[in-house]
Computed example of a mutant assay.
Amino acid sequence: MAALQAVQASYLAIRDDLFQALWETVYMVSASTVFSLVFGFLLAVVMITTGPHGLRPNARVYRSIDMAVNLLRSLPFIILIIAIMPLTRLVMGTGIGTTATIMPLTIAAAPFAARLIEGSFLEVDKGVVEAARSFGASRWQTIFMVMLPEAMPALVLNIAVLAITLLGYSAMAGTVGGGGLGDLAYRLGYNRFQTDVTIWCILLLIVLVQVIQSTGNFLYKRLR
């Protein structure tokens, strides 16, 4: 009974901060997921088109994009967010805060999204693609009307993976003033030795991961 009362007292003491941090995390992850998917999809389309077995192979273009994607993916996020802080200030008007963090999150996740989308497209049966081409489908028709619908189930699962990865990135961003659950856990849980705050933040992050993955699994089954 005493333990339950202690948990309730802990929750009531930080409830407002906890919900504010949760909202900031959901906002950062949602916005950066959308933006990274847009840029990642554009990169993936170019790679699918210009790749060795693409619709219009171009080794020079493919190698350039492939190298750029690998370079960005090789940078740890905590280093990337510091390295591009001048650019973030220039574009966003500030280098810290929840909204400002969306930019480094997007830059970090777009190459990862491009690889996931490219992999989903490469899993499409080549026979289906060749059949569409033999019926006179253009490159864009083949990509958007054949490959994209065929790859959609795998894409949904990969989007869930991307969102969960960004959730982890957003927690790291909290250590450099990015806001969200990571910021709350660092600012109160670590700096002020409030272990209960850290535990609540971890529990909420676990719930968010479960919700994202369960939604992805549900949509995957429906699309299959």
Rank of each mutant, 00 (worst) to 15 (best):
A100N: 05
P149G: 10
A154F: 04
E123T: 15
R89P: 15
M92P: 05
P76G: 00
N70D: 01
L166Y: 01
A132K: 08
R56N: 02
T98Y: 09
I82Y: 05
I65D: 06
I96L: 11
I117Q: 09
A114W: 00
F135W: 08
M85E: 10
A59H: 08
M147L: 03
V146W: 04
S138C: 01
P149T: 06
N58C: 03
P76L: 01
A100I: 09
G95L: 07
L87K: 04
M152P: 08
L122R: 12
A68C: 05
I164P: 04
S74C: 14
M145L: 12
A114M: 00
G97Y: 11
I65T: 05
I65M: 07
R139W: 00
T142S: 06
G136S: 04
P111Y: 01
L72V: 01
F77M: 07
L71C: 14
P104N: 12
E150K: 12
P111K: 01
R133D: 05
W140G: 10
M145N: 14
N158W: 02
V146T: 11
P76R: 00
M67I: 13
A100Y: 09
L155Y: 14
V146A: 12
R60L: 13
V91H: 13
A113C: 15
M147N: 02
S138F: 02
A160P: 08
A100D: 14
R139D: 03
A59N: 04
I164E: 04
F77K: 01
